Amino acid sequence: MARFLLTDLQASNSGPYTCEYYRREPPQISSQPSDSLLLLVTGEFPKPSLQAHQRGVVTARENVTLQCQRLNNSFESVMFALLKAGAAEPIRVQGPAKEKMDFSLRSVTVSDAGNYSCVYFLMKAPFWASEPSNHLEITVKDKTERESPKMAETGVGTVELTLIVIFILLFILGVFLIYKYTRCGAAPNKMTKCSRSSKDPQEQRTSVQPGKESDDLSMAITSCSPALDKASQVSRAEEPHTVTYAELNTRALREGLSRQMEQPLETCVYSTLKG
């Protein structure tokens, strides 16, 4: 193997190159020439533009079309070459064409991702070439990459996230049912019925004329029993302090009424009690 170093390249160095080897001792028989290698020295023509028909990220196994177009097409047909950063030689060479050329990359893989550019050049001597176009980045995403980067980092999938949401909803529902039962769970038959009056108990006693009737009425109007259940006591605590609860003794009322009917009619004073 031999290496040939070419330094300080100029546009005149453009063209096809071949190599061969031969014996140093007689008979000096040489080999057949190698395949030709076209060397292009860029910079003689204005740079073209490179565009992709697909925008954004390309999925693996899809087809990608890149179009290289030159700005000045006043001279003869030229050849177009597609370049990739890091590659020692053009990816594709196609032509001839006057204005533009499409390069199709079929069934792309992750290895096809990278920065691409293109040039155009003359097909014969002096093989002048244009400046390379601006780089165009191609990103290829594998089909197996379905999870987003954040989900992949945390290790939480769609199923796990759904279960977490269901658990939170069930917890909230349970708290609501417990709260509702504690507020409204008391049986209505345990509530004691009491009459309410806006007047003070002292005012009630003084508004009635003294006599036998007052004794009966005092027997009829009794305070509510302190043995009320807790739910009733809680509801009373919420009432204003000016409200008085009482329980009517219907038996004492009937007895007082019968005694009044037996006695002769006398002058009576009536008082209205606000219930």
Rank of each mutant, 00 (worst) to 15 (best):
I178A: 11
S232D: 10
A220D: 02
L228W: 01
M219F: 15
S218M: 12
G155P: 01
C184S: 10
I138L: 15
R254K: 13
R146G: 08
E160Q: 04
C224G: 11
S225F: 04
K190M: 03
E213S: 13
Y179T: 07
R236C: 14
E247W: 05
S207M: 15
E153P: 00
E153F: 04
K150F: 09
P149L: 09
M219W: 00
P132W: 02
L136V: 15
V165P: 06
V165T: 11
H241S: 06
D216I: 11
S195A: 15
D215V: 11
G185S: 05
A187H: 13
P132Q: 00
T182H: 00
S195K: 07
L169N: 01
A220P: 07
L228G: 02
T162G: 05
S214N: 12
S195P: 09
T192Q: 04
M219K: 06
T182Q: 03
L136A: 10
T192R: 05
G174P: 01
S232N: 03
C184Q: 05
S148Q: 05
K193E: 00
M151C: 07
S225G: 00
P210M: 12
D229G: 00
Q233W: 07
P149M: 00
N189R: 05
S197R: 12
K212L: 13
E153T: 04
E213R: 04
S232V: 15
I168Q: 02
G185A: 05
S225Y: 03
R251I: 12
G157K: 06
M261F: 15
P149H: 00
K141M: 10
G185Y: 06
R205A: 07
I172S: 04
Q204T: 13
T144H: 08
S197T: 14
V165H: 03
Q209A: 15
H135G: 07
Q202L: 08
H241N: 02
I172G: 09
I178F: 11
K212S: 10
D229W: 01
C224Y: 08
E147M: 10
N189T: 08
A237V: 10
S197P: 12
R196G: 07
A231N: 02
V175C: 06
W128K: 15
A152R: 05
I221D: 00
E131W: 09
I168E: 03
E239P: 08
Q209I: 14
R251P: 01
T192N: 04
T192F: 02
C194G: 14
T162K: 00
E160D: 05
D216A: 13
V156A: 05
S133K: 06
L253F: 15
S133L: 08
E147G: 02
T244I: 08
D229V: 08
F176Y: 12
N249G: 15
Q202E: 04
S232Q: 12
S258K: 06
G157P: 04
I178K: 10
P188G: 10
N249K: 11
I172L: 09
A187W: 11
L169C: 08
L228V: 14
F167M: 14
L136Y: 12
K143A: 06
T242C: 04
C194H: 01
S198H: 04
I166L: 05
I166H: 01
H135C: 04
A125W: 07
K180G: 11
T182M: 13
E137R: 15
G211R: 03
Y245R: 10
T162L: 00
I178V: 02
I164W: 09
P226M: 02
E137C: 14
R146T: 12
L217W: 06
P210K: 12
L253W: 10
